[in-house]
Every structure is written in structure tokens, then in C-alpha cells.
Computed example of a mutant assay.
Amino acid sequence: MRSAATKNTAWYINFKKFQGYIFKHIECNFLARVVKYDAKKHIADIQPLANIGDGTKSAQYLDVPVARTCYQLDELLDHFKPDYSATDSNSHLPAHTSSNFIGHYPPTKAMRVGAVVVVSVLDRDADNWDGTGKTFTPESSRTHSANDSVITSVFL
């Protein structure tokens, strides 16, 4: 017969294993690489960077919405690029005769194929969300699912 201490130790070890299993399967935030990006719809296909425990690559996530903060500066710079180019090449202002606005532009856009992004997984099913600030009722009881991922920032 096993002692109470042995039983308690076995219970504790098994509980910790179960806890680890649960934590591994709750998705919250992760790093991913952008595989495809639709700049008009602001959605991306991404490849999570962390492999599964056995070394297998994680499956790609498709049509993940991109937060405005990830692409807004890119669009603003694109909007002003013609004006800055004109100023660089043909300024009549003495202070701007040697301006180099375009030379100071970032070499690449922040939100692009190959960018490393931070992805957040929403707590609840967002299928019924219409993209506005209105409240909504989740369609299912789904929680912390990859189906409800959102790209929240560009890391690299």
C-alpha cells in the first residue's frame, strides 16, 4: 500500500501535467510571419513562428484582420509621397533647395509580406461582429480560438 505522501505527490505531478496541457492549448498572443497581405481589404495570411511541440510547423492562419495601427502610417506616407517628391525635385523655397524627404522614407512598408507580426486571439467568437463599435452576440461558445485572431502590431 502506498503512503499518503506518495499519493499526494502523484496527484500533484499529474495535476501539473494536466495544467500544462491546458495552458499549451489556450491561444492568447503569438508571433507570426506575413505570407500574403491584401492591402485593400487589410487581411493577411500568416505563418505562426512557434512550432508545435514535436517540431512540426503550425498551420497557416488565413484571412486574419489587420489592426489599423499596423498599416495607417504606410498609407499616410504613400499619400504624401508625390508632394514630397515634387518638393525634393523642384522646390522654389530657398530653405528647401536641397530637401531629401523621400530619402528619409523607410526602405520598406511596415505591413508587408515577410513582416513579423504580433497576433492576438480574441477571448470570444467574433463571427457576428460587423467591424463597428456596436455590441454583438457571439454566434457560438467558442473561446480563445485561432479563428478569432487579429494582427495587432508589426514587430519587424
Rank of each mutant, 00 (worst) to 15 (best):
T97E: 04
S85D: 08
K7R: 14
H96F: 01
L76I: 08
I43W: 02
Y37T: 02
R142G: 01
A59T: 05
S85W: 01
K81H: 12
G131K: 03
V117T: 08
N29S: 10
M1Y: 10
V34N: 07
V34F: 06
H144Y: 14
R124S: 10
A5V: 13
T132I: 11
S58H: 08
L77T: 10
Q19P: 00
I151V: 15
K109M: 07
H104Y: 05
G133W: 08
F30Y: 13
Y21K: 14
V113G: 00
S149Y: 01
D45W: 03
S149K: 09
S85F: 01
A10N: 10
H144V: 01
V154K: 02
D88I: 06
I22K: 10
A39H: 08
I43T: 14
P107M: 04
Y12F: 14
T87F: 00
A50Q: 12
N51A: 15
G53T: 08
K81G: 02
P65Q: 07
F136S: 10
H96R: 01
N128W: 07
D125L: 09
I13Q: 13
I102A: 04
D130I: 00
W129K: 01
E139S: 11
N128C: 10
Q47V: 10
T152A: 03
K109G: 02
F30K: 03
I26S: 07
D83L: 12
T56F: 13
